[in-house]
């Protein structure tokens, strides 16, 4: 398995801030659909190494955005929200669900139940 630090949603901002202080930056975030839960892995870059933060949230639960801490999380979070329908709040650049998906595209297409 991947080296990762498991966190709760509430610890996330603090931890991210600490990582940013150390000179890391967010590389990307991966979301997985676990059925009734989402798993979100935040990958951070530092000196060509990846630091992974893993959190789990229930479906429908709000996830506060970290784009206020680091702007380049904005596109990543927009994408997660569109693909999975995660309720991410307060994204710095808000595409309102229209970043990659068009109005007539399937909604939340990455959910396991949305198989076509």
């Amino acid at each position: 398995m991947l080296n990762s630090i498991e966190l709760s949603k509430t610890d996330l901002p603090e931890r991210v801030e600490a990582l940013l202080e150390e000179g890391a930056r967010i590389a990307t975030a991966t979301c997985l659909d676990l059925g009734d839960q989402f798993e979100v892995i935040y990958h951070f870059n530092k000196d060509l190494e990846l630091i992974n933060l893993r959190i789990r949230i229930d479906k429908g639960e709000e996830l506060p955005s970290i784009s206020n801490l680091t702007l380049n999380a904005a596109l990543i979070e927009n994408e997660m929200r569109e693909f999975f329908g995660i309720n991410i709040t307060n994204i710095a650049i808000d595409f309102k669900g229209g970043m990659l998906l068009a109005g007539n595209s399937p909604k939340a297409p990455m959910l396991k139940c949305s198989d076509t």
């Binding site: 309102k96 669900g97 229209g98 068009a102 109005g103």
Partner: peptide
């Protein structure tokens, strides 16, 4: 004259 922009607005 208008164009489609962000989020198809």
């Amino acid at each position: 004259p208008s164009f489609y922009s962000l989020a198809d607005q």
